[in-house]
Amino acid sequence: MHELSIMQGLVDAVLDRTGERPVAAVNLRVGSLSGVLPDAMRFCFDVVAAGTPLAGARLQIDEPEGVARCRSCAEEFVLADLILLCPCGSADVEVLSGRELMLMSVEVA
């Protein structure tokens, strides 16, 4: 479960900035095409945050959906998965969102 190592990295990255200060909330942006599951992140967060200043913090995850633009017909469309195919049949598409895996901000008390 890669979510565990990712959340351990998150705790590391937050503590590097906030030190001892109690953290009330952590804001993430995790796209639907990122390969990481928000529910698994929530589960792992409780485990890795225990005993740190992040214990009990709210984990707020913004989940942008996959959106792509076709370079052939210029249409924008929702990407349900990683299959990069425009309804017009072209595979020349650019992913605009959905692949985000970002630690956006933290709220400290």
């Binding site: 990255a13 937050v14 001892e20 895996l101 956006m104 933290v106 008390a109």
Partner: peptide, 19 residues
């Protein structure tokens, strides 16, 4: 005191940045 006031700290970094 070592009391801080509540604030939001912007990080905007990739979660896999270290790796």
């Amino acid at each position: 005191h070592t009391v801080h006031h509540p604030e939001t700290i912007t990080l905007e970094q990739n979660l896999l940045a270290k790796n």
